[in-house]
């Protein structure tokens, strides 16, 4: 990996972690249990690379909270889980372990709120650090195959993706999900130049 890509990734990782830190404190304020959020890995991929690596998501069918963002660059932010993990996460956060495999209209609303907090914090932090605000849509909850979730519209623009594995740790559980930022064509260049402007590489 070229040195500048590594620099960009490190800077992005720092932003995502900062955003998730805020999200975790927001979640913890609401919940009785404690949630820790961390990012074990982060990668920049083309959509094709993302699709080729979809098997590593462990499940062809995914639960997904999606937010559209618009600002210095535009795109969509996705928080994805295998459905069973999503149900377990909600059960752990709500403190109701009686139906940990149950995903329904009420639990998906809860997932929407979790996605809302997480994705708002992550995009908000990127906006704050770049000093460029973003507008965010309401979160939408969707379920489907990974490739369908990536392509709900047929716009020809091929976005580049930022994939961050996100780990939720509660008192008794460890649940992994993914944050995916799909950035419209050219968006990443804007992001990278903004990064260099706000975070000049050392040396």
């Amino acid at each position: 990996m070229p040195a500048d890509s590594r620099f960009h990734l490190d800077a992005l990782r720092e932003m995502v972690i900062t955003g998730l830190g805020q999200a975790a404190s927001s979640l913890n304020m609401m919940l009785d249990s404690t949630v820790e959020l961390d990012v074990p890995s982060i990668a920049m991929l083309t959509r094709e690379e993302l699709l080729n690596g979809r098997n590593s998501f462990g499940n062809p069918h995914l639960s997904c909270v999606q937010v559209a963002f618009c600002g210095p660059f535009s795109g969509r932010a996705l928080l994805t889980f295998p459905p069973l993990s999503a149900a377990r996460l909600v059960a752990a956060l709500v403190g109701d372990q009686t139906h940990p495999s149950d995903l329904n209209a009420v639990t998906t609303d809860t997932l929407s709120e979790i996605g809302n907090i997480l994705l708002n914090c992550v995009i908000g932090t990127i906006g704050n650090i770049l000093a460029e605000p973003f507008e965010l849509s309401l979160p939408h909850y969707l379920e489907g195959k990974f490739e369908d979730l990536l392509q709900p519209d047929s716009r020809p623009a091929t976005p580049t993706a930022l994939l961050a594995l996100t780990r939720f740790r509660t008192d008794d559980h460890q649940i992994e999900g993914n944050i995916i930022l799909l950035v419209e064509l050219g968006g990443f260049n804007a992001l990278l130049s903004l990064l260099e402007y706000s975070h000049p590489p050392q040396g």
Partner: peptide, 25 residues
């Protein structure tokens, strides 16, 4: 309470929508 105030007040700065779900609230 802080858990509500902290999330609601970002709205007054034009912040993104905020959701309070039925299970958590």
């Amino acid at each position: 309470e802080e858990k509500y105030v902290s999330r609601i007040k970002s709205t007054f700065g034009g912040g993104p929508p905020t959701i309070f779900s039925s299970q958590l609230h």
